[in-house]
């Protein structure tokens, strides 16, 4: 401690050594690496398989597939937009499509894990005020703490590569899904839940037959946000050796190559628009779709109608 203690500025002369103490986490992480490695291997395999599948599909087929999905989920106009975005993405650079698929694989892996973790947490938070109260500061931390802070400990523990990339992405992208799932559950009309109770539904039946279906548009809005946030993490994740469009931007920055940066950046934007429009289309309520089931609209509806006509 400093000898000249200044009462007006006490903070400058007190050092509790929190920084050094926290640095111990790094040591602990390195010491425990062996525990994590098998898990890491498993997830690495999963991500590699997703990427392999995405890369194996010829770009034209993939493009058509995505357009069809967009048409089914969000209608014809969005399908046209998605088509344009994907064509632009492909024309940006000969390598752009392949890089985009790598990025997409990371995003898909992160979002899948986010759903598996976030949905149950969100439901719990929607049901219990106490849990919501406890989880909220954690979510705040996850969303606001700069990514660089946890980048290093994660790398120390797990090593560089896709799995670390997915983990840092989850930390950043998970909160909106939890928050909006909780909000969705909480904003279900209580009188409908009461009616379900009055007709003898179990808590489980109330959750799956009433609360979750009615909360779906809100939950999908959360999923949409989660996807957008995980896309915005791809550049930072590329610092720990995650390949894909983000890596292009990072390398371009290192070489002050503005052209390459724009190519990578625009690619991310195109991918973002595609994923955003598709998931937004999913979130529309039944009434907005004119009370038709999903199989009555889009390409599936068209095929079904054609088949029916032939019979």
């Amino acid at each position: 401690m400093d000898k000249t203690f200044d009462w007006l500025n006490p903070f400058a002369s007190i050092d509790l050594g929190i920084g050094e103490w926290a640095d111990g986490i790094k040591g602990w992480a390195m010491a425990n690496r062996s525990v994590i490695q098998p898990l890491k291997g498993f997830f690495d395999g999963v991500i590699a398989r997703i990427e392999g599948a995405l890369q194996a599909v010829p770009p034209v087929i993939m493009l058509l597939l995505l357009v069809l999905i967009a048409w089914q989920a969000a209608g014809r106009r969005v399908a046209v937009l998605v088509f344009c975005c994907l064509v632009v993405l492909g024309l940006l650079d000969p390598m752009a499509w392949s890089l985009a698929m790598t990025t997409l694989a990371i995003v898909i892996s992160s979002v899948l894990l986010c759903v598996m973790i976030g949905l149950p947490l969100g439901i719990l938070a929607g049901k219990s005020d106490r849990f919501e109260l406890g989880v909220r500061p954690v979510l705040d931390t996850m969303q606001t703490i700069p990514a660089f802070v946890y980048l290093v400990p994660v790398v120390m523990m797990i090593g560089i590569g896709n799995v670390s990339g997915v983990i840092v992405t989850i930390i950043f992208a998970l909160p909106p899904l939890v928050r909006l799932t909780s909000l969705g559950i909480r904003s279900v009309n209580p009188s409908v839940v009461e009616a379900a109770r009055a007709f003898g539904a179990t808590p489980r039946q109330i959750l799956f037959k009433v609360e979750l279906p009615l909360a779906t548009p809100t939950i999908l809005a959360g999923l949409n946000q989660t996807i957008m946030l995980s896309l915005s993490m791809v550049v930072i994740a590329s610092m720990i050796s995650v390949k894909g469009l983000g890596n292009e931007v990072l390398r371009a920055m290192g070489r002050l190559d503005a052209g390459k940066a724009i190519v990578g950046g625009l690619g991310i934007v195109m991918l973002a628009i595609v994923l955003d429009r598709i998931t937004q289309g999913l979130g529309r309520s039944g009434r907005q779709r004119g009370h038709r089931h999903w199989w009555q609209t889009g390409p599936v509806g068209l095929v079904a109608a054609l088949l029916q006509k032939r019979n």
């Binding site: 009188s191 009461e194 009616a195 007709f199 003898g200 039946q205 009433v210 009615l214 039944g286």
Partner: peptide, 27 residues
């Protein structure tokens, strides 16, 4: 026991038939 509510409390995501059959469905 069957119950009718002032604000109807029908389930908006279910058709008329699915609403009416709810008590039977949970059984």
């Amino acid at each position: 026991i069957g119950m009718v509510f002032q604000n109807m409390a029908l389930m908006p995501h279910r058709t008329v038939r699915e609403n009416v059959a709810f008590a039977l469905e949970v059984r």
